[in-house]
Design a protein around this nucleic acid. Structure first.
Lengths: 137, 137
DNA sequence: GTCTTCATGAGAATGATTATCGATCACAAC
DNA sequence: GTTGTGATCGATAATCATTCTCATGAAGAC
């Protein structure tokens, strides 16, 4: 009744990935995580990184977004529950955003068109204050 | 005086892809377009499909979205200008949506966080009225 | 028709993600 | 501490969408 993850073991690798994400503030791709863990001395296989991130995403422990070129990037959620992101397209800094207004809007629109079981995907991209000053886009 | 695209030739292949998109109502991936053109007797290379879609996307002639597994899908815009989509995750039917409210919201949020040059990505996914009745998700 | 230049396409290359599968390790029971 | 068992790991091969290469073909200008 309380075992949500019947068989989920605590391994060195999973711990390492979890801690890495806890420190990294913003989104990282599986490849980046793999490389940086290696450089940090943690010996973790690439396949394991992918597997772990996937299961963490299923469990709602991390957020997932797609980068412009189609790669998946992951981030430890700091806000529980549903939220969106404002990502700097230059430095990757990310702000988590909650907006009831958008949720309500989405629900309304969906209903108007007869859609049910609706989810949505809302991401904002821009240049953060620091990058905006120097960027050439 | 009227050549908006200095060097953009009208070829059999580009015409075929354009017409295909005009008929297809919803989003199609490059692979699908390629396969279906072939089956329809049009001899078009896969690379050409990708190239053409890319240039059409740049020119704002088609919309682009990412499917759940990271593939790009394209659709002939029926609405000019900026808009969003409401996509049925079962049958792929798509509705184009315009929402000033969301635009305004995005701009406001961005400004609050000091972000500039902001774009956004808003897609709604659900089950359309027809699919909703039978689907098991 | 001729010429110049862009477009095409078959196949190779790239790069992220997933699958394979024997070796290894976590952890509960003894 | 030992042991048994099954989940997990990881090196590498396999997949698969997308991009690149470059010789050949076709559009448009004259």
């Amino acid at each position: 009744m309380m075992t949500e993850h019947p068989q989920r073991r605590t391994t060195r690798q999973r711990t390492a990935i979890g801690e890495f994400l806890a420190h990294a503030g913003d989104f990282r791709t599986a490849q980046q995580i793999h490389e940086q863990l290696r450089m940090g001395g943690d010996r973790v296989g690439l396949a394991t990184v992918y597997r772990t991130l996937q299961s963490m995403a299923e469990g709602g422990e991390v957020d997932t977004v797609r980068t412009a070129d189609g790669e998946s990037a992951y981030r430890r959620c700091t806000t529980s529950g549903h939220h969106h992101h404002l990502v700097c397209r230059s430095c990757g800094r990310t702000e988590e955003i909650m907006a009831k207004a958008v949720e309500a809007w989405a629900a309304t629109i969906a209903a108007q068109h007869g859609f049910t079981d609706v989810t949505h995907d809302v991401e904002l991209y821009g240049l953060c204050a620091r990058c905006g000053a120097t960027s050439t886009r």
